[in-house]
Amino acid sequence: MTVRPPSSLTNPGARATGFDLLEYELMSERADALGRHGLKVETAIARLEACTDEGMREALLDEAADVVWSFFITRELCGLLSNKDAIARYRIPRAVIARLGVVRKPRTD
């Protein structure tokens, strides 16, 4: 399915090229991905806040850190370089921020 950008976003004197249409579709996909990642962050933080078991909390902290790290990378791909507003908006705890980007060894339980 092809999507044409709204006429208000195009230059009236220029013709739309294939590159312009592709860029519009890519921007749309980036925005959709950012929204999906935002929902994952909300879910992970809510699970973490609702947790009462200390043993389970460590696993949820690791999961939340991975989700937030992925979200921050997606934000950067969208051109949003500062994460301060996202940290405040999603109420991301400092314990999660401290674990961002940490590569953990696989568990051998």
Rank of each mutant, 00 (worst) to 15 (best):
G35L: 11
I92N: 02
P6W: 13
P12S: 08
S8K: 12
E58P: 01
C78Q: 04
P12V: 10
D53M: 04
A16G: 09
G13H: 15
T74Y: 00
T10E: 11
S8A: 13
L34M: 04
G55A: 11
A46I: 10
R47W: 01
R91G: 01
T2E: 15
H37Q: 07
L9K: 15
G38R: 03
E25F: 06
S70F: 00
L77D: 13
E54P: 09
A46S: 15
G18M: 12
K84A: 10
R104M: 07
I73N: 05
V41A: 01
E63A: 14
I45Y: 05
V96A: 02
R36E: 12
R36F: 08
S7T: 14
V67K: 05
D109K: 11
G101V: 01
I73Q: 06
T74A: 12
L22V: 03
L22W: 08
A88I: 05
A65V: 03
V96S: 01
S82Y: 05
L39K: 07
D32T: 05
M27A: 15
T2G: 14
D66C: 08
P5L: 07
L34I: 02
A88M: 03
V96R: 02
A46P: 07
V102W: 05
N83P: 00
L26P: 00
D53C: 07
R91S: 08
V103W: 14
W69M: 04
A98K: 06
N11I: 10
G38M: 02
L21T: 13
R94A: 14
P93T: 00
R75S: 06
E49K: 11
P6Y: 13
L100T: 02
I73P: 00
R75E: 13
L77R: 13
D20N: 09
G101I: 02
A33F: 08
L39A: 12
R15L: 15
D66T: 06
L21Y: 09
E54N: 06
I92R: 01
R75Q: 15
R75T: 04
G35T: 14
V102K: 13
A95T: 10
L9P: 07
T43V: 01
G18K: 13
S82N: 08
E54S: 11
D109T: 09
R30D: 08
A46T: 15
A44M: 07
C78F: 01
L81M: 12
S28V: 05
A16Q: 15
Y90S: 00
Y24S: 14
L21I: 13
L61E: 09
A59L: 13
M56K: 12
R94E: 13
A65R: 03
T17P: 05
L100D: 02
L39Q: 11
A50L: 08
E29Y: 09
G35E: 15
P93F: 03
A14L: 14
R57S: 03
R104A: 11
R36V: 10
D32K: 06
E23Q: 11
K40D: 10
V67W: 03
L9N: 15
E29F: 10
P106W: 04
A33Q: 14
S82E: 09
R107N: 04
L60F: 03
K84G: 03
G38A: 04
L81Y: 11
I97G: 04
Y24C: 11
D109E: 14
G13D: 15
